[in-house]
């Protein structure tokens, strides 16, 4: 067990595809669906089982934006920055989240491991712009203030549960 990832489970996923090289992307998608990201140990295990260089696996994993090589928070916040959301001021929302979560530089996940902040190019809900999703739950017509209130509410729930 490393970072909460079970290597037996990873091996089972690889084997479910017959450890075929041609299924590399599908294998990585399945593992990511389960653990939200791909750790270096996971990529090395895939390389070993598929008998390809780990550099090749890393190459594919970094080519697609969809694969994450960093551990993600419990709540994944996606701020839409498509044209409609952008003109309806999604950027201030994004900035407010960064400020609230104290994210610096290229940091995407809050220090407490609770939130990961991402942008997406369009969620297909332009009529509701600006749109933010938290773990695939859609929040429409957001403002920086509403966003911070939402984050505080989640934080409070988490603290109560803990």
């Amino acid at each position: 067990m490393a970072n909460g990832i079970s290597m037996e489970r990873v091996e089972a996923i690889i084997d479910s595809y017959g450890a075929q090289r041609s299924n590399l992307i599908a294998i990585m998608q399945d593992i990511q669906a389960e653990y939200k990201y791909l750790s270096p140990q996971v990529l090395e295990k895939i390389a070993e089982k598929l008998n390809i260089g780990v550099a090749k696996v890393y190459s594919v994993a970094t080519f697609y934006e969809n694969f994450s090589l960093e551990a993600k928070g419990k709540y994944i916040i996606k701020v839409c920055d498509g044209t409609a959301c952008h003109v309806r001021k999604s950027q201030p929302i994004y900035n407010a989240i960064r400020e609230h979560l104290k994210l610096e530089g290229k940091q995407k996940t809050s220090a407490d491991g609770l939130f990961t902040l991402e942008t997406v190019s369009c969620l297909g809900a332009c009529g509701l712009a600006p749109v933010v999703t938290i773990n695939d739950q859609v929040h429409s017509k957001m403002t920086p203030e509403a966003m911070v209130a939402l984050l505080e509410q989640i934080e409070k729930e988490e603290a109560d549960n803990a």
Partner: peptide, 20 residues
């Protein structure tokens, strides 16, 4: 037959590098 280095990332950020 080693495959020690490969491309990583894409587009403008593409580079040739060992894994990670």
């Amino acid at each position: 037959g080693m495959g020690v280095i490969d491309f990583a990332k894409r587009g403008y950020n593409m580079q040739v590098t060992p894994a990670f």
